[in-house]
Computed example of a mutant assay.
Amino acid sequence: MVWGSRPLLRQYGNFMDNLRIYVKGGPGGMGHPRLGGEGGRGGDVWLVAKEKTTLKRIKDRFPQKRFVAGAGANSSIRALKGEKGTDCIVDVPLGISVISSDGKQIGELNKAGDLLLVAHGGLGGCSVTNFLPLKGQIQTVNLDLKLIADVGLVGFPNAGKSSLLSKISHAKPQIADYPFTTVKPELGKIMYPDYKQVSVADLPGLIEGAHANKGMGHKFLKHVERTKQLLFVVDISGFRLSSKTRFRTAFETVLLLTQELDLYNEQLRTKPALLAINKMDLPNAQGDLNELMKQLQNPQDSLHLVEKEMIPQSTIKFKDIIPISTHTEEGIEKLKNSIRKSLDEEAEKENENYQKEKLHILQTSEF
């Protein structure tokens, strides 16, 4: 099959990571001035995080992308206090940032059941409002999805990230021998013998200049922000995007990936990271690996060999470096064990920090 722009665009169209919606709180009900009755308050519009929900599903089900809550009931002789209007509940995926039309973040919904109020209902008619009802809040908000995963795969196109995901998990991403096979994020889960599950996100390949939104730029990088750890995947033989771009060695690839993450958000540099050196089944791979390991152990000794603009402010210290081959499956089990060990260590650190903070609060409390 020949892949042109149309199939790729259609495939990416099945995945949405941003959706703009209109939300409107319900108007309040009329008050009853003669009897002092109060109208019911208008309903509110709430977002609730729910598993197995996607932004595309919301768009398909509600093509107008309008969500309006019910009006409050009028005050009457039978019911001086009008009932509140019906709330409008909108199911959204986990990992949503809600942004107002002026670019301010309203809130986030990261775990199932998280709730966020996005449009207040109007006050019912009462003595304060001269018994006239008030309109509900109206606004347009952006739902910005950032995938939540334990591990995010980071690498240039054709480094073998999709192949790796298929080997370590039950995911079935699109795989082929050309750049940009992955045009949308893919999620997989590593299943361990003790039933522990680790989620892994294969994200569209970076290119030089991604931090400045070149290529898929920010569409890729924003998803890296919510992963707990990073797994760099590098081709031991180096990388070249096309005949018009320069060839980059494996060492230069590591530097460039680090730089792209750092320039987009320097906080990404602080995430725990592993390095998988792929395609060890290729000729001369072992010799290339020996050279790369020397360069990674003493990067300062090799930085004079690369262009100045390629050098990141600081290099990443990988928790583990694992040579692998997705073709022969060399090193795959070791990599899975390394991922698990790294995550367990970080979870233990977080727990220790939490206990220390809790103890500090108890010791400094007046009670």
Rank of each mutant, 00 (worst) to 15 (best):
G72Y: 02
G72H: 02
G72E: 00
A73W: 04
A73R: 05
A73L: 10
N74W: 15
N74R: 08
R78D: 14
A79Y: 13
L80R: 04
G82M: 03
E83W: 06
K84E: 07
G85I: 02
D87M: 05
D87R: 03
C88K: 07
D91E: 15
D91W: 12
L94C: 09
L94N: 01
S97K: 12
V98L: 04
V98G: 01
D102Y: 15
K104F: 14
K104T: 15
K104Y: 15
I106R: 05
I106H: 06
I106F: 15
E108S: 09
N110Y: 13
N110Q: 14
K111F: 08
K111H: 10
A112K: 15
A112V: 11
D114T: 08
L115E: 14
A119M: 05
A119P: 04
H120T: 15
G121S: 07
G121M: 02
G122H: 01
L123E: 08
G124T: 03
G125E: 02
S127R: 11
S127E: 11
V128K: 11
T129E: 03
T129H: 03
T129N: 04
N130M: 11
N130L: 11
N130E: 14
F131K: 02
L132N: 08
K135M: 12
K135L: 14
I138Q: 12
Q139L: 07
T140M: 09
V141T: 00
N142L: 10
L143W: 00
L147F: 01
A149W: 01
V151G: 00
V151Y: 02
